[in-house]
Nucleic acid binder design. Sequence first.
DNA 1: CTCTAAGTGGAATGAGTTTCTCCGCTTAGA
DNA 2: TCTAAGCGGAGAAACTCATTCCACTTAGAG
Lengths: 232, 232
Amino acid sequence: MTTSAPTATTLPATPTHGADRPLRADAERNRRRILDAAREVFARRGLEAGLDEIARHAGVGTGTVYRRFPDKARLVEALFEERLALVLGTISDAADEPDAWQGFVGAIEALTRMQIEDRGLKDVFFSHFGDAEAFREHHDRLVPLLESLVSRAKAAGELRPDVELTDLAVVQLTLCQVGRFAEDVEPDLWRRHLGIVLDGLRVARSAPSPLGAPPMDAAAFDAACGRERGGS
Amino acid sequence: MTTSAPTATTLPATPTHGADRPLRADAERNRRRILDAAREVFARRGLEAGLDEIARHAGVGTGTVYRRFPDKARLVEALFEERLALVLGTISDAADEPDAWQGFVGAIEALTRMQIEDRGLKDVFFSHFGDAEAFREHHDRLVPLLESLVSRAKAAGELRPDVELTDLAVVQLTLCQVGRFAEDVEPDLWRRHLGIVLDGLRVARSAPSPLGAPPMDAAAFDAACGRERGGS
DNA sequence: CTCTAAGTGGAATGAGTTTCTCCGCTTAGA
DNA sequence: TCTAAGCGGAGAAACTCATTCCACTTAGAG
């Protein structure tokens, strides 16, 4: 089943899907369509979205998806390997920012924004899907980059010394939840809470920083909870 | 199907389940068992738990649950009406605390702890289940109490003036997520993040407050993501 | 143009969920 | 003693998903 060793004993020289594979033109076209559809659907609904929905969105049958990608996990890997490279670049930019605190804030802000815009990306970071061997390399490059942002901000006397990288991961997870909670009602709400948390992460400050977005009112809150419009 | 009108044309005067109802002793016993089981199961797994699981846990058949409570929503209402009264009492105590900031912190801490210990409670607050008419009265008593805690803490010059009640609801929602994320690995992690956020909610401070729990290490983080134990 | 292996769509399968109903049997308690 | 209330739990009815199967179509080499 999972043997990827070439069963070349019968077929002499037709590498139809060995290491390289010259896909038929229409097949290659469909492969791209599937990846594009997966990007959109996973971004909107997260990795829990079904492959049926992706197939429908791509305009192909579900069988075609499975012909191209052996299972859902493999499709996720194919899709997010490119995506993670982009993330890496963005964080790399933040690490180049001359001001330590600015760089730190920029990294958190960018990571969070990307994960709110692409719920699949958030799932790669925070669910078992991120376990895939395919993501190992990106992960191993991303972590030291973030570590350096953290230690630089601490050394500059801006970031409180008692927080660690995992704390920042958790902060991001929570900001993603704020984004999701309010997405239909106050899409920028997460920036407000980023502002609060950042003030909590600084060593000291004399006054609160301005928050980046307006709060929800009571009606918006009820709507975000999925409730009917309350009476009074 | 849904007609609850008494089909009393045949039975003249037996108010078996009219307005009042003298349940048979064994039936009353089972009713309590079901509520107790529901409390435990909903606390552990949230309101998404199935009634089958509750019935099994109560040692009764699913039919018995449905005989006592017409549907899941009604069971939830019966259960959490008592529970909300308890919450109200706790917040009331916090409002009586002489120090404004202490009272405010105590209220957030207590609300969050209760919701982390009882995931069903969190769902009542933050999902469509909370919509039930049965919760209206408790809701209408809780909100002004929280409002007063907020305005008092602002007036004391401790709480930043640009946050509103909905912001605190969102803060709590996120703390619940931290609790859930780390529950198997670092059950007190949410206190750490409560500490960070509280520092962000204060008007000013000269140094970070000590955090109430240790951070996760990398292995704990992976475990919390539901991942296999990574190699290096 | 012909022919065939690659490619295709989407129904079907199977394994999960869940809520809620039905009905033959048991038992409390008047 | 007797009967209506109560009981358990199988199972109906709707869903959700991932994955497979196969009769049909078509690209593209010769």
